[in-house]
Simulated assay, not measured.
Amino acid sequence: MKRFGVFILLLAFLAGCTNFNRGVEEFSGTNEDNDNISNVSNRLDREDTQEWTMDSQNPNFLPLDRRDNVSDQSDINKARQVIEETGTYRAGQVWINGDDMWVTAYKKGMMTESEKVDASSKLRKQLLKALPRYHIEVKVQEDRT
Rank of each mutant, 00 (worst) to 15 (best):
M1K: 05
K2N: 14
K2A: 15
R3F: 12
R3I: 09
R3S: 13
F4N: 13
G5W: 13
V6T: 11
I8M: 13
L9E: 02
F13M: 08
A15E: 00
G16N: 05
C17K: 07
N19P: 02
N21P: 00
N21V: 04
G23S: 15
V24E: 09
E25T: 14
E26C: 15
F27H: 15
N31Y: 14
D33F: 12
D35L: 05
N36L: 13
N36S: 14
N36W: 10
I37M: 15
S38W: 13
N39L: 05
S41R: 04
N42Y: 14
N42I: 14
L44F: 12
R46T: 06
R46N: 09
D48A: 04
E51I: 12
T53Q: 04
D55Q: 13
S56L: 10
Q57M: 14
Q57D: 09
Q57L: 14
N58A: 05
N58G: 04
P59G: 03
P59C: 03
N60F: 14
F61L: 13
L64D: 14
R67C: 06
R67W: 08
S71V: 06
D72E: 08
D72W: 00
Q73K: 12
Q73L: 13
Q73P: 00
S74W: 06
S74P: 00
Q81M: 04
Q81D: 06
V82Y: 01
I83H: 02
E84H: 07
E84W: 05
E85F: 08
T86L: 03
T86A: 07
T88V: 13
T88E: 10
Y89W: 07
R90C: 06
R90N: 10
R90P: 03
A91Q: 03
Q93E: 13
V94R: 00
I96W: 00
N97E: 02
D99R: 03
D100P: 00
D100I: 02
M101V: 02
W102Q: 03
W102L: 06
W102D: 05
V103M: 01
T104M: 10
A105Y: 00
K107L: 02
M110K: 13
M111Y: 07
M111E: 01
T112M: 06
T112W: 04
T112A: 08
E113K: 04
E115G: 08
V117R: 07
D118W: 08
A119V: 05
S120M: 01
S120A: 08
S120L: 00
S121Y: 08
K122Y: 11
K122W: 09
L123A: 03
R124H: 08
R124Q: 10
R124N: 09
K125R: 11
K125M: 08
L128Q: 08
K129T: 06
A130I: 01
L131T: 01
L131Y: 02
R133I: 00
H135G: 04
H135E: 06
I136C: 05
E137D: 12
V138T: 09
K139G: 01
K139N: 03
K139H: 04
V140I: 11
Q141R: 12
E142A: 10
D143R: 05
R144A: 12
T145L: 11
